[in-house]
Design a protein around this nucleic acid. Structure first.
Ligand code: FES
Ligand code: FES
Lengths: 150, 150
DNA sequence: TTAAACAGTACTGAATTGGTCCCATTTTAC
DNA sequence: GTAAAATGGGACCAATTCAGTACTGTTTAA
């Protein structure tokens, strides 16, 4: 099927919510669970991951909570998805130094490197700011031909 | 992890092999299993899928086998992957008409449509011909900035 | 001192994926 | 005419990955 995981999807929703609340102050896991309808344990798990990867900052203790580590305009989808799912590597041989005996003399690898980069770039141009304010997508061209559908 | 499935990877390998053998004539599942080292039942399964989606033509009977339905230069990665994994839909709501209650007022959808299109395009510019002859990737630009890494 | 928050880790059940098996049908060689 | 070699079409099982839960500890401020 080739889709991003549910957890990544949730993470994006959570971060949008945090970005909105940012006008005031930090947000707690409990509040986020309430407003997004995502189960609290799941919210907690995701916020931990995002913190770990430097997307969020956390404050412990009584009046603690989470805040964005960077501005909404500097927090993009590629970073978010990588925080939840790990590095974007469309094929096995892109992430690990595997043997790859099947591809006899690998003509395919350079193409995958390229596809991988294009995909990551497409993700990275979309920021939290775009998602919360409704900015339109950046035009994309491939081989000189405009791509962006719709 | 966000990667294409092993089966898609195998399918690409198989098709490269068929494309190479095409100089002569069609190829059988048994031959492909032998040359690619992929287990015969798996090869059979994949060839069926590719046939079903119109990527391959099949001939039954004693001297039967498989051939490409179109020229190598007209058979691209997007089509191959879609034959094996189904339509490219990075988020759930892109394929099914689901309710999507979580995203309050969906600002995200247009961006996903865009990312999806960019990704599919990146896949579709790579053809079997490129993979077997070692053509270099087409340049990609995003918002005017050249992307293609390496 | 206590309550509310994050930190870390381990575990379980569900869903998807990868891989196998079986039998039917078609075609050709002998 | 018959047997062999190929595809056609299911159903099926095993292994991995993913999603979700639970528990226990640490920090901070009222
Ligand atoms: S896929 Fe890794 S070398 Fe070909
Ligand atoms: S993701 Fe489907 S409408 Fe937002």
């Amino acid at each position: 099927m080739l889709r991003i995981s549910k957890l990544s999807d949730y993470a994006i929703v959570l971060l949008c919510e945090i970005a909105k609340a940012e006008r005031g102050e930090g947000t707690t896991a409990r509040q986020l669970a309430a407003t997004t309808q995502i189960a609290l344990p799941t919210v907690v798990k995701l916020l931990k991951m995002l913190k770990e990867d430097g997307v969020l900052l956390s404050m412990q203790g009584r009046n603690g909570g989470y805040r964005l580590a960077r501005r909404p305009s500097e927090t993009n989808l590629a970073v978010i998805i990588e925080a939840v799912e790990g590095p974007i590597a469309l094929t096995e041989c892109m992430s690990e130094e595997l043997d790859c005996q099947i591809h006899s003399k690998c003509n395919t690898r350079p193409h995958w490197v390229h596809i991988n980069a294009a995909f990551r770039q497409a993700l990275s141009v979309v920021t939290l700011n775009d998602l919360t304010t409704g900015t339109m997508p950046v035009p994309v061209t491939l081989g000189g031909v405009r791509v962006a559908a719709l």
